[in-house]
Design a binder for these strands. Structure first.
Lengths: 136, 136
DNA sequence: CAATCCACTTGCATTTCACAAGTACCTTAA
DNA sequence: TTAAGGTACTTGTGAAATGCAAGTGGATTG
C-alpha cells in the first residue's frame, strides 16, 4: 500500500481531516511544532499532556507518512532528529487558529494569551501572517 | 463530577478542542448537523462512514454533556428525537470551514464542491455568513 | 392489536492505548 | 578507549475503546 492508495472511509473533506489528525494526540504534536518551536523527540515528550513514548513514535511516523511532518538528522548531533512541519503541515495554521479561538471562547480555564484573542478579533489575517513568518 | 469540573490534561486551548472532538467520529456528527441538515439518530447512522450505533449514542451523549449539541423531542413524532447544534456547536463553523479547505487542497480524492473553494478563496467571510444563515 | 419504526443497550471479540521497562546507537568525559 | 549518560525509540502487558450483531422497550401505523 502506497501513500496514495490508502482506503479512506469516504471522500468527505472533514473525514480526510479526521483520518489525518482525529485522535487524542496528533493535534498536540502539531501544536508543539507550530506554536512552541519544538523540534526534538524529547521536547514533545515533555509537554504538559504527558504523551507516552510509543504513542509519540507512532504519531510522528504517521504524520511523516501523511506528509505533514518531515524528519531529518540534527547537524549538531547525529543521535538527534529534527522534526518539522511540511508546507502541508503549515497549511493547518488557519484551522489551528480557529480551534484556539473557539476554545478560548468556550473553555473558562483556557490559557490562551489575551494578545492572541485581541489580534484575532481585530485582524485575523494579520494573526495568521504573524505565525506564518515564524515558519521561515 | 459536574460539567465544569472535568479534569483536562492541560489548559491549552488546542487540548480543549482535542478533548471535545479529538476522535474518529465526533467531527463527522458535527459535520452532518452543520452541513447536511441531519437531525435524527437514524440520519447519522446512514452516513457514508458507517458509524456503529453504540458509538453514535455515546458521541451524541458526550456532545450533549459538553454543550455542543442539544436533544429535544420531535413535535411530529414522540418516538423521535431532534439533535441540533447549540451556539457553542455552531461556533465551530470557522474551524470546520478551514479544515474543509485544507483537505480540499491536500486530498486529491476529496469531493468538496468547487463552489465552496471558489467562495472560500474569494470571500471567506461571505462563506461563513452563508452557512451561518442556515442555522437560523 | 399486531407489525413496524425508532432510539438506543448489551455482549463479545478485536483493536488500540497507556504505562513501565528495555534496547541500540551516539556523544562526552576520564 | 572505554565507561557513563543522552537520545530515540521498541517491546510487553493489562486496560480501555471500538466494531459488529443481536436484543429491548416505547411509539406509531395499518
Amino acid at each position: 500500500m502506497t501513500k496514495n492508495s490508502k482506503d479512506l472511509r469516504s471522500n468527505c473533506p472533514i473525514n480526510f481531516a479526521v483520518e489525518t489528525f482525529g485522535d487524542k494526540w496528533t493535534l498536540l504534536v502539531i501544536r508543539d511544532l507550530m506554536f512552541k518551536g519544538k523540534r526534538h523527540y524529547s521536547d514533545f515528550l515533555a509537554s504538559d499532556e504527558k504523551i507516552s513514548t510509543n504513542i509519540l513514535a507512532d504519531r510522528l511516523q504517521k504524520l511523516d507518512d501523511n506528509g505533514v511532518v518531515t524528519k531529518s538528522t540534527d547537524p549538531d548531533n547525529a543521535s538527534k532528529f529534527i522534526y518539522s512541519l511540511t508546507e502541508k503541515g503549515q497549511a493547518l495554521l488557519p484551522a489551528m487558529v480557529e480551534m484556539t479561538a473557539w476554545s478560548a471562547n468556550y473553555d473558562s480555564l483556557t490559557n490562551t494569551p489575551s494578545e492572541f484573542l485581541n489580534t484575532y478579533n481585530a485582524n485575523k489575517a494579520a494573526l495568521i501572517d504573524m505565525f506564518k513568518a515564524q515558519f521561515s
